[in-house]
């Protein structure tokens, strides 16, 4: 069973279909603590209602008030393309193919942050450190900071703010680790 936090982070960046916000907030606190990052208590991250939590996801990542503030796709940020299915999308597909993986049928584009974090988890499970290093250096760590900036600019619910930051820290630490291996 895959247990890497990247699967959790991937899942957290997917649309919340079922009300697991309490458990997710607690897990996020644990992950933050594990990496020495101070975050608010889990209960502070829980929104008033689950429907609010879902509509916040829509606002941030699908179609929402104040425009789609943080489109969660590599294509938007690589070369500052601003639209889907450009260089960032091609790059993601290249890395997947090189690792012997292909995205399954999904309504989400394969360069969605949830796909890329899950891919990271699979690479870690497979000990595929060469592709891992190159994927982080040449792709995910290139665009993630721009995405995080837009996410924070959107003044998201605390959960998504913390999720963005914890993901950033995990990516940064992992990146350093694989570079030094």
């Amino acid at each position: 069973m895959p247990t890497h936090p990247f699967f959790f982070l991937s899942e957290s960046f997917s649309y919340p279909e079922s009300d697991t916000i309490t458990a997710k907030s607690e897990a996020l606190v644990l992950l933050a603590k594990d990496i020495g990052f101070q975050v608010p208590a889990a209960k502070e991250m829980i929104p008033q209602s689950f429907i609010d939590f879902q509509s916040e996801y829509v606002r941030l990542f699908i179609n929402a008030a104040d425009g789609i503030f943080a489109p969660p796709y590599a294509s938007i940020y690589v070369n500052n393309a601003g639209i889907l299915h450009q260089q960032g999308y091609d790059d993601a597909l290249s890395f997947y193919a090189k690792a012997g993986m292909a995205p399954t049928e999904s309504e989400e584009s394969p360069d969605h942050i949830a796909h890329e974090l899950a891919f990271l988890g699979l690479l870690l499970d497979a000990d595929n450190e060469d592709i891992l290093a190159s994927f982080l250096t040449r792709h995910l760590c290139v665009w993630y900071p721009s995405f995080l900036q837009r996410l924070q600019d959107a003044q998201p619910y605390l959960f998504y703010s913390v999720l963005g930051q914890v993901t950033d820290l995990y990516l940064t630490h992992l990146h350093k680790e694989v570079i030094h291996e």
Binding site: P2, A23, H115, A118, D125
Partner: peptide, 16 residues
């Protein structure tokens, strides 16, 4: 973390 979602995490691996 793995236990924190109702669906469990292997679902995310299923993206590939």
């Amino acid at each position: 973390v793995a236990a924190s979602t109702m669906d469990g995490l292997p679902g995310q691996a299923g993206l590939f």
